[in-house]
């Protein structure tokens, strides 16, 4: 009985963790879009670097989702 409660709790924990990571993924996508829009409007020396950072953040978010799948 106790084991089945534990397993249910683990599943709920995994679902919550995954949902949080997916919400964060949406945020990361918005950041990429935001930087692209800003860079289109105002062009300066560091724009390519900022776009690279935005994509790096997106990739790190995908790693977070993978980590949530593996670890939780």
């Amino acid at each position: 009985m106790l084991n089945s409660v534990d397993s249910y709790l683990l599943i709920i924990e995994k679902i919550i963790g995954m949902l949080a990571a997916i919400v964060y993924l949406f945020f990361a996508l918005i950041v990429v879009k935001q930087v692209q829009t800003m860079s289109k409007n105002v062009k300066d020396m560091f724009n390519p670097l900022l776009i690279t950072f935005a994509y790096a953040h997106l990739v790190a978010t995908l790693v977070l989702i993978l980590l949530a799948i593996v670890v939780l």
Binding site: H57, T61, V63, L64, L67, A68, L72
Partner: peptide, 14 residues
């Protein structure tokens, strides 16, 4: 700790 730490640094970067 691993997952929380990773998320924390990601949020800090953002």
């Amino acid at each position: 700790k691993i997952l929380g730490g990773f998320l924390w640094f990601l949020v800090t970067f953002a």
